[in-house]
Every structure is written in structure tokens, then in C-alpha cells.
Write a protein that binds this DNA or RNA. Structure first.
Length: 161
DNA sequence: GCCAACGTTGGC
DNA sequence: GCCAACGTTGGC
């Protein structure tokens, strides 16, 4: 099993969207960066994923997701109306991939970026060393270092409240 | 293949 | 709104 971190603006797709979706997975699509895509393509069902909220009031880790499908062709690349349409992609030669994820749990509080920056285990973490990458792997040590201070996770049934 | 110009991400 | 850090594009 692998560990990952994905970034999203909560206005686009945040932890509360996963809470609202409950058991039903949400498609993680619209990745249009090759490095991020290549990491996404390495995802397997059962992999654990931290959801990071970016460009918002409370920047930081908001909860835990789980990969539920193998990576598959992102359909948005073929939809001319979509923000994620790619004229150079064809059904013969698709360029971009997506996976489905579902909520594992929502953090009681967002674990802020400022706190992450202080964790010694994260000093070499891709999150802090490589800006602008929206899908990245985490080592088990990095995962543990974030999960601990993240505290109790509300399961989707709880989080719905 | 090089590199300048431009666009995007994302924290502050 | 600003700007640093990148990635992409396109001329040559």
C-alpha cells in the first residue's frame, strides 16, 4: 500500500464534498501536469491519501481519502466545454488520467501548513520542497508524522453529523 | 536544442 | 494584489 498527498482548492473539491458524498467515491480528475499525472498513475486501490486544502482561509491537511479504482482515462480531456479539455488528446492517445477516491475521515481541525513546516520528519517532504506539485507520494514516516497531529478522524457517517 | 516569453500555482 | 517558482510554448 502506498501513501499520497493531493492538493485541491476546497471551493473546487474539498473535504466537505467527500463528506457529502458519503460512501460514494468522487472522481479525482483535471490533473494537467505530467509529474502529478505520473504519480496519479502509480496509485492503487486501497492506497491512503491525505487531502490538502490550498489557496484558502485554512491552508493545510483536511482529512484522509482512499483510492478505490485503478487509474483510468480522464474523460474531461475530451469535453470541449470543460476547463480541462485538451485539444491534443484523442481517444486513441489519451493524455490524462483520473482515479476515484472516497472519504476515510475528516480531520476535526485542518492541520495548518505552518505546523507541517515545523515537523522535523517533513523537512525533506516533497510538499515542502517542491512547490506547485498537486499529487505527490509520501513516505511512511512522513505519513505517520502528519497523521499523528491530525488527531481523531470523523468517519463519513459521523462527519455528516 | 536553446531560451525568452508567458501562464499557472499557491503562499503571503 | 504581489511575487517566487516552475512548467509550457514557440521562434529560431
Amino acid at each position: 500500500m502506498n501513501y499520497w498527498l493531493v492538493k485541491s482548492e476546497p471551493d473546487e473539491c474539498g473535504i466537505d464534498d467527500f463528506v457529502a458524498s458519503g460512501d460514494k467515491p468522487i472522481r479525482w480528475d483535471g490533473i494537467r501536469n505530467y509529474q502529478a499525472r505520473n504519480f496519479l498513475r502509480a496509485m492503487k486501490p486501497g492506497d491512503q491519501v491525505l487531502l490538502y486544502h490550498s489557496s484558502c482561509k485554512q491552508i493545510g491537511v483536511a482529512g484522509v481519502l482512499e483510492v478505490v479504482t485503478e487509474p483510468y482515462v480522464d474523460p474531461l480531456q475530451f469535453e470541449p466545454g470543460s476547463d480541462y479539455y485538451d485539444a491534443k488528446a484523442s481517444t486513441d492517445k489519451p493524455k490524462w488520467s483520473a482515479v476515484d477516491m472516497r472519504l476515510v475521515g475528516k480531520a476535526g481541525q485542518v492541520l495548518p501548513l505552518a505546523t507541517l513546516k515545523q515537523l522535523s520528519a517533513l523537512q525533506t517532504c516533497v510538499l515542502l520542497t517542491r512547490p506547485r506539485l498537486s499529487v505527490m507520494p509520501l513516505t511512511e514516516d512522513e505519513w505517520q508524522a502528519i497523521i499523528k497531529p491530525l488527531g481523531h478522524l470523523q468517519l463519513f457517517s459521523e462527519a455528516k453529523g
